[in-house]
Write a protein that binds this DNA or RNA. Sequence first.
DNA 1: CAATAATCGCAACATTGTTGCATTTATTTG
DNA 2: CAAATAAATGCAACAATGTTGCGATTATTG
Lengths: 140, 140
Amino acid sequence: MHNQFHHTAEDMIRHNGGRATAGRIGILAILLAEQHAITHREIEQRLPQEQQLDRVTLYRALEWLAEKNLIHKVTSDDRAWRYHANRDVQSHQHAHFKCTCCAQVICLDKLPVERNWPLPAGYRFQEIELTVKGLCANCC
Amino acid sequence: MHNQFHHTAEDMIRHNGGRATAGRIGILAILLAEQHAITHREIEQRLPQEQQLDRVTLYRALEWLAEKNLIHKVTSDDRAWRYHANRDVQSHQHAHFKCTCCAQVICLDKLPVERNWPLPAGYRFQEIELTVKGLCANCC
DNA sequence: CAATAATCGCAACATTGTTGCATTTATTTG
DNA sequence: CAAATAAATGCAACAATGTTGCGATTATTG
C-alpha cells in the first residue's frame, strides 16, 4: 500500500511547510508513480480502499499541491482536469499529448515552446497551453 | 433583431443541407457578428427575448454547426466551450488567446502552427490545440 | 395542403467542481 | 506526554456545463 514514492512525497510536502497528511502523501505518491497526467477519478481509483478520500478533500489537496508547484494541472477538452507531478521544480511551460482514442495524456517535456507569440498590440503574454492530439502507440 | 449576417447565415446553413430554422440562423448570425469566441451563455444573452432557445436546442444547434464546419469549438480551462464562426472553410489549425483577467477569447488566425511535433515513436499526429494566455489590451 | 423527417422543448440525469461549516487531526508548545 | 491550536477533513448542499429520451412541433417536399 506504500509505493516507493511515499517517502519522497512526504519530504516534498514537508519542505513546503504543509502538513504531511495521509491523503496528500498518498495523492502525491500516486502522481509521482504515474507516467501520464491523470484525472481526479483515476487518482481516486488508485487510492487504497482503506484510505479513500472525500471528493472535496481530494480537490483541495490537489489545489494545494498545485499551488506549491509540486504538481500541475492539464486542461483538456473533456472538461476534466488532469494532474501530473513536477519532478523538477522548473517551469511547466511544456506541451501535452492527448490520445483521441483512449484519452490518455502524457507530458511532452522535451518539446521546445517558443515564447514570443505575435499577439495583437497591447496584449501581454503570460503562458501557453499546448495540447497535441493524435493516436498513441497503443491505439495506432 | 436581424443583424446583417442573417442572410449569410441562412445561406451557409442551406448549403449544408440543413433546415434553416430560426434558432440555427440566429445563432450562426450571432457568431458571425462576433469577433471573439463566446460561450453558450453569451450566445443565449445575445439572442433576442422573443426567440430564446432551450439550452438543449442551443447545444444541439452548435453541435450541428460544428459538424458542418461552419463554426468551431475552443477548449478552455474553465470547463466551458467557446464557439467561433469559420469565415472561410479552411482548417482551424490556429491558436487562440485567452485573457486571464476578463476571460475573453480571440482567435489568432495568423499564428503559424508547426505540424511536425516530435512525438514519441509510434504516435500519430492529428491536430493541435494551442492557447496563449495573458492580458488583453483592456486588462493590461 | 398533406406527409414526413428533422428539429425542438421538456424533464430528468450525469459529471465535474465549489462553498460553508462543524469535526477531526497533525503539529507545536508547555 | 498532554493540551492548545491552526490546518485539514468530511458532509451536505449547491452550481455550472453538458447529455439523453421522448413526445410535440415545424420546415420542407411533393
